[in-house]
């Protein structure tokens, strides 16, 4: 168990370093940062001043190591746009993105798991087909368009929910639903296939032979085994959702980390962009690591290995 976790931890660190290197190289190779920062009207001297001020005149590996060293100690650099430390900018906006992501995941699980179970229980019937149709539709729905449509329908026409902003908790409902839509198909399919496997297994036949109630057979014996991969994928989906919240935050004008990233990208505020990439990758890696540990806790075979 300990060895397993240790190996996962080392792997996670390696992945993080690689992602860092790639994203750093990408941003640096794709253009001259100093030129784009200075703007189209700047003179050659202005560009040089900026280059020196931000240490962009140093060799790339030196810049990279300096940045990694600073990042490791919590210093993510300063935003050109806000003239403030990037770490603080992210920290201020994190609660919104995190709340949004967790709301989305919560809604997705509440919808996907019961539907997946139902589809598995009524495998190959009309009900199963209808439920799986939801997955296909969810997969085809462009999230930003769904967001705008819901704003028009529920916010403007019916006036049930706020159009944008998160001053009240209702503000999280629409973006949460839209975000959930992206995770529902995968979670539902996984729940269904896990439950189909579990329900046709020998231990379910044993449970039936023991005279257990249908509810206990499905929700206790089958779901417990089907849930293990769902937990892992739910964590990974949360990572994708936090990464994908950039679109949702733009649609609903939520001032979260995604919005910050979008703004910084459009304005070439590259310390912020780089830090958000680093930040989201770290969260994703931490989440997958957490999923591995949760799985190990849920599966007795892994726990004692």
């Amino acid at each position: 168990m300990l060895k397993f976790l240790l190996r996962r931890l080392v792997l996670a660190l390696l992945v993080l370093i690689t992602v860092l290197t790639v994203s750093f190289t990408l941003t640096r190779l794709s253009g001259d940062v100093a030129v784009s920062m200075a703007g189209p009207t700047a003179s050659q001297e202005d560009v040089e001043t900026i280059r020196r001020a931000y240490g962009l005149d140093r060799p790339l590996p030196v810049q990279f190591l300096a940045w990694v060293g600073d990042a490791a100690s919590g210093d993510l650099g300063r935003s050109y746009l806000y003239h403030a430390p990037v770490a603080g900018l992210i920290r201020d906006r994190l609660p919104i993105t995190l709340t949004l992501g967790l709301t989305g995941l919560g809604i997705a699980l509440i919808v996907a798991i019961p539907l997946g179970i139902l589809a598995a229980m009524y495998e190959a019937t009309i009900l199963d087909r209808a439920i799986m149709m939801i997955a296909v539709i969810g997969q085809a729905m462009p999230s930003f368009w769904l967001g705008l449509s819901l704003v028009i329908l529920l916010g403007l026409r019916l006036q049930w929910l706020p159009l944008s902003g998160v001053e009240t908790w209702q503000g999280y409902i629409l973006p949460g639903v839209v975000l959930a839509f992206s995770a529902i198909p995968a979670l539902m399919r996984l729940t269904r296939s896990g439950m189909v496997d579990a329900l046709s297994s020998d231990y379910i036949r044993t449970a039936r032979a023991k005279g257990l109630t249908r509810a206990r057979i499905v929700l206790h014996h089958a779901l417990r085994n089907a849930a293990m991969p769902v937990v892992a994928v739910a964590a990974v989906q949360l990572g994708f959702m936090l990464g994908g919240s950039i679109v949702i935050e733009a649609v609903f004008s939520l001032n979260g980390v995604g919005y910050l990233a979008w703004e910084s990208i459009s304005k070439n505020d590259f310390p912020v962009v780089q830090s958000v990439v680093l930040f989201l990758a770290t969260i994703y890696i931490a989440l997958t690591l957490m999923a591995d540990m949760l799985n190990a806790l849920l599966d007795p075979r892994l726990r004692s290995a």
């Binding site: 792997l11 992945v15 993080l16 690689t18 992602v19 790639v22 994203s23 990408l26 941003t27 794709s30 253009g31 784009s36 990974v236 994708f240 936090l242 990464g243 994908g244 950039i246 679109v247 995604g258 990233a261 979008w262 990208i265 459009s266 070439n268 962009v273 958000v276 990439v277 989201l280 990758a281 994703y284 890696i285 997958t288």
Partner: peptide, 18 residues
């Protein structure tokens, strides 16, 4: 694994913008 850890939309946006 590394590719999965890269936030897709964010990196795509960054590259396109640069």
């Amino acid at each position: 694994t590394c590719r999965l850890a890269i936030p897709l939309i964010l990196v795509a946006l960054t590259v396109v913008s640069f």
